[in-house]
Computed example of a mutant assay.
Amino acid sequence: MAMLRGIDTAASGMLAVQRRQEALTNNLANIETPGYKKVDTTLRAFPEVFLERINDSKQSSKGNAPGFSWIGSMQQGVYAQENISSFLQGDLVTTNNPYDVAIDDQALTLSNGQKASVLFAVENAAGETRYTRNGRFTVDETGHLVTAEGCKVLNNQGKPVQIDPSLASSEVSISPKGEIILNPDKPANRKVVDTIGLVLIQNPNKLIKEGNGLFRLDGQKLAPLTDLPASVQLHHKMIEKSNVDPSMTMTNMMENVRLYEANQKVLQAYDRSLELLNSIGRV
C-alpha cells in the first residue's frame, strides 16, 4: 500500500509540473502581446495523512484509541491549485500609432493598501462587457474604436466610442484622462468628441481570463470611472508591453523539466520494484 501511495505522489507531482509548464509556455508565447498579463501557477500540497499501527494494546501519547498507536505522517504530493494572472504593469513603449493608448497605474494603491488595477472596458460581438489592458486600437469602417479582435471600445458612459474614420491621424489626440480631442493644435476648432471608458478593479484576482487579452467579472458589471484617480493616466501613441520576464520564465521552465524528470525516475524505481515482487511471487 505504501508503494502505491508513492506512485500516486510522484504522478501528482508530474501532473502539477505539467500544468505549470503549460502556463509558462503560454506566457512565453505572449511575450510580444500588448497588455498581456503573465499567469502564475500556485502549487499546493495535498492534506497530510497520519499513520497508525493496528493491534497495539497500548494507548499512545497522541491520544489514539486503544488498539491503535500513532507512528508518523506522510505527504501525498502536490497539485496545481489555480492559475493567477499577475497585474504588475509592463513597460510602456512608443508606437506613434494614432489610436494606441497605454494605461499607467503603477502608483495606484487603495486607501487600505491593496493594489488595484485599471482596465479598458470593451464590448464583444455578443454585446457583453469585457475588460482588457491591450490599448492597441484602430477605427473600423463604421467609425467605431475597436481592439485588434474587433471588440468595441466603450466610453465613460458605457457606450461604444465613435470617431470619423476619414480623419487624419494628426487631427486626433487622446489626453491623459482619455479625452478624444479633434484638432488638438487648432484652438479655434478644438473639440472633445468622446472619452475612453476605464474601470477600476479593486481586486484584480477576481477577474476571469478569457483569452485574447480579455477578462470578465462573473455576476457584476463595473461602472466606468467618471474621473480618473490622480495616480492614473493614459499615454497616447504608446502601448503597454507584456509583463512576462523572458529570462525568469526560461529558468522556471528548465526547473520544471528537472522536477518532471525527478518524479519520472521515482516512478521508474517503483515500477522495477513491482516487477521484482511479481517475479518473486511467480517463483
Rank of each mutant, 00 (worst) to 15 (best):
R5A: 00
A11C: 13
L15M: 09
V17H: 00
Q18R: 09
Q18C: 00
A23T: 10
T25A: 15
L28R: 01
A29Q: 02
N30H: 13
I31K: 04
E32A: 14
G35F: 04
K37W: 02
L43M: 10
P47K: 06
L51T: 05
L51G: 02
E52A: 10
N55M: 01
D56S: 10
G63P: 11
N64E: 05
P66E: 03
G67F: 02
F68S: 07
V78L: 13
Q81H: 15
E82V: 03
N83T: 05
V93L: 05
V101S: 02
A102K: 00
D104G: 04
Q114T: 07
V118E: 09
L119G: 01
E123K: 04
A125T: 09
A126R: 09
G127W: 06
R130Y: 00
T132N: 01
R133H: 01
R136I: 05
T138F: 11
H144W: 05
H144G: 15
E149C: 02
G150P: 01
G150Q: 11
K152A: 04
K152P: 08
Q157S: 12
K159D: 14
K159N: 12
P160S: 11
Q162P: 08
I163M: 10
A168V: 12
S173P: 13
E179K: 09
N183D: 15
K186H: 13
G197H: 01
Q202C: 03
N203F: 15
I208N: 10
G211D: 09
G213S: 11
L225E: 05
V232W: 06
K237I: 00
S242K: 01
P246W: 12
M248W: 07
N252D: 07
M253R: 00
N256A: 01
N256P: 07
N256Q: 01
E261S: 08
E261R: 10
V266C: 12
L267V: 02
S273G: 08
E275F: 01
L277W: 04
R282P: 02
